[in-house]
Computed example of a mutant assay.
Amino acid sequence: MMNLTQELANGVAQMFPDAIFYKKTTEKVVALTIDDAPCYQDREDFGTKLILKAIATHNRQYSQLEPARATFFIISSHLCPDSQIIPEIVANGHEIGNHGVIDETHAWLTPQQFEQQLKEAHEKLLELTGNNEIRWYRPGRGLYNQKMLQAIANLTAAENYDLRLVLASMIPFDTFDFANHPWLTATYTRQMIFPGAILVFHANSLKVAQNTALALETILKDLRQRDYRIVTVSELLDKR
């Protein structure tokens, strides 16, 4: 039987069938995703490294279990020219997703602007990951339209992309100052957990990234205590 959170996610997914909000499964597994990394103008990538450290520390504490992994949805303009954060994310066993060039509402772009930015971000991420596959795109502010879907289809046909649009089964509040507190983020997230859920947290500023890193200490521990596996979007959606 679905809980209320599952029912809400299912209702939204039926209204927006072109996006992925969660996976229907009875297995205790969730996908962990981080948006907006690295932090804007964070030349040392300090905020993203805090999140990576929080996950790595958790994995050491639960070394007898499969390590927790995340999908980082990257805004390509946030990357400093000499940044090594993408190889570091990949080296830690995590996955890279496309979150566009600029932290903005992509649905407000013209079709030409959107296609150009999607391609620019995609090619940059491919370069930095050593041409590893980039499979997932998440639109800015979680909004999309049919013209964006057509642009994705155009690039798939012309450039051999294989992108799918992924959102999440929870509405994030961690980018708002009034809700930017680790305890509140962890408490809220606990109510959003169900088998197949896609969780989303943010790293758009150093303050928000610090909140995410601290909140993850509690969230990941809680998931383990409830016997959940914590995986990337690919691991969640590829598993039958």
Rank of each mutant, 00 (worst) to 15 (best):
A157I: 09
L165E: 10
Q117L: 14
Q191L: 07
Q191E: 04
T26E: 03
A31E: 00
G100P: 01
F114R: 13
L32R: 14
Q41H: 10
L167A: 05
V29P: 03
D82A: 11
Q225M: 07
G97W: 00
I96V: 05
T5V: 02
T48A: 14
Q146P: 01
D238I: 03
P182G: 14
V231A: 12
E133S: 09
D45L: 04
R164F: 03
L220K: 15
T105W: 07
P17T: 09
E159I: 12
N160Q: 12
I219H: 13
L8Y: 07
K239R: 10
F46E: 07
Q84I: 08
E127D: 08
T33E: 02
Q117I: 12
P182T: 10
K124P: 00
A157T: 06
V233P: 02
A91P: 06
R60W: 05
R141H: 12
K147N: 15
V101D: 03
A186R: 06
K49R: 15
T175D: 09
N204G: 10
I134L: 03
G97K: 00
G140Y: 11
L184R: 10
L199P: 05
L126V: 07
L220P: 08
M148V: 06
S83R: 02
Y228P: 05
R43I: 11
E44I: 08
Y228C: 05
T218I: 09
E120M: 13
N132Y: 00
F21D: 01
E120P: 00
T110L: 11
F46K: 13
L220R: 11
I85E: 04
K119V: 13
T105D: 09
D222R: 09
T156Q: 11
R229K: 15
Q116R: 15
L143W: 08
D177S: 10
A153K: 12
A179F: 14
M148H: 13
I74Q: 00
T25I: 04
A56I: 06
Y40G: 00
G97Y: 01
L4F: 13
L199C: 08
K147Q: 14
E7G: 03
L8S: 04
A197Y: 01
I193C: 01
E104Y: 09
R138L: 10
M148S: 14
Q113R: 15
T71K: 00
H58E: 13
K24S: 03
Q150W: 11
T5S: 00
I134M: 02
M148E: 12
G142T: 08
S169D: 09
L223Q: 10
A213Q: 11
R135H: 02
M192E: 02
L199Q: 06
R240Y: 07
L184Y: 06
T71R: 01
H122T: 10
G130T: 03
K124C: 11
R226S: 06
E235A: 08
V231G: 10
D227W: 00
P195K: 01
N131S: 03
V233I: 15
A168D: 08
T48M: 09
L109K: 12
K49T: 04
L155P: 00
L206D: 11
L165F: 05
H78F: 07
L126P: 00
I171G: 05
Q150A: 15
G196S: 07
S83M: 03
L237D: 02
H181I: 14
L32S: 09
D174R: 05
E217A: 12
R164E: 05
T187K: 12
I86H: 01
A203D: 04
N180K: 10
L128A: 04
V166E: 06
V233D: 01
A91L: 08
L184Q: 11
F21A: 01
H202Y: 08
